[in-house]
C-alpha cells in the first residue's frame, strides 16, 4: 500500500520534477492539487475558446463584407466626384492659387456647393464601419491567441 501510494506520488511532469528538486529532502507536496488546478484551467480555456470561435468566424465574415462595401463606396465616390465640377474647382488650387486666395469666399462656396455629399457621406460611413469592425475582429483574434497560449501552458 505504501509502495503503491509512493509510486502514485512519484513526479512525472516537468513541473513536478522541478518542484521535487527544489524540495529535496523535504516532504513532497500534494501533486494532485496541481493537477486538478491544471485540469480546471484547461477546461476553462477550452470553454472560452468554444464560445470565441463562432465570434471569430462572424468577425471575419463581417470584416470582409465591410471592406467590400468600402471598396464599392470609394468607387461610387470617385465616379460621382469625376462627374461633378468639384474636381475642376479643386484643380484650380494648383494652377491659379493667387487668384483663388483673392476670391476665397466665392471659391469656397463653389467647392462646397458642388461636393457630391451623398457619396461622401456613404464612403465616410463605410470607412467608419470598417474601422470599428476591424477593431472588433482584431480584439477577438488577440483574445483567441491569449486563451490558446494559456491553454497550451
Amino acid at each position: 500500500m505504501d509502495k503503491a501510494i509512493s509510486s502514485a506520488n512519484m513526479p512525472h511532469s516537468p513541473l513536478e520534477l522541478s518542484i521535487s528538486r527544489q524540495l529535496k529532502g523535504e516532504p513532497m507536496p500534494e501533486f494532485s492539487g496541481y493537477l486538478l488546478e491544471k485540469i480546471n484551467l484547461r477546461l476553462k480555456c477550452e470553454r472560452q475558446l468554444k464560445t470565441l470561435k463562432p465570434k471569430l468566424w462572424l468577425a471575419s465574415f463581417v470584416m470582409l463584407s465591410s471592406l467590400a462595401l468600402l471598396t464599392f463606396a470609394v468607387i461610387f465616390l470617385a465616379k460621382d466626384f469625376s462627374q461633378s465640377p468639384s474636381y475642376r474647382f479643386l484643380d484650380l488650387v494648383f494652377t491659379d492659387f493667387g487668384v483663388i486666395v483673392a476670391n476665397w469666399q466665392d471659391y469656397i462656396y463653389s467647392v462646397l456647393e458642388s461636393l457630391p455629399l451623398g457619396a461622401l457621406a456613404l464612403t465616410l460611413s463605410a470607412g467608419l464601419a470598417s474601422m470599428l469592425i476591424t477593431d472588433f475582429g482584431v480584439h477577438q483574434w488577440s483574445s483567441f491567441r491569449k486563451i490558446s497560449s494559456a491553454a497550451r501552458h
Binding site: R88, D91, L92, D96, V99, I100, N103, D106, Y107, S110
Partner: peptide, 19 residues
C-alpha cells in the same frame, strides 16, 4: 471653361475668374 463668381438677382453669375 471653369468660372468662379458671385450670383446676382437676375439668375446670372458675375465672373471673378475664368480658366
Amino acid at each position: 471653361i471653369v468660372v468662379i463668381g458671385e450670383p446676382n438677382q437676375q439668375g446670372q453669375i458675375q465672373a471673378r475668374f475664368v480658366r
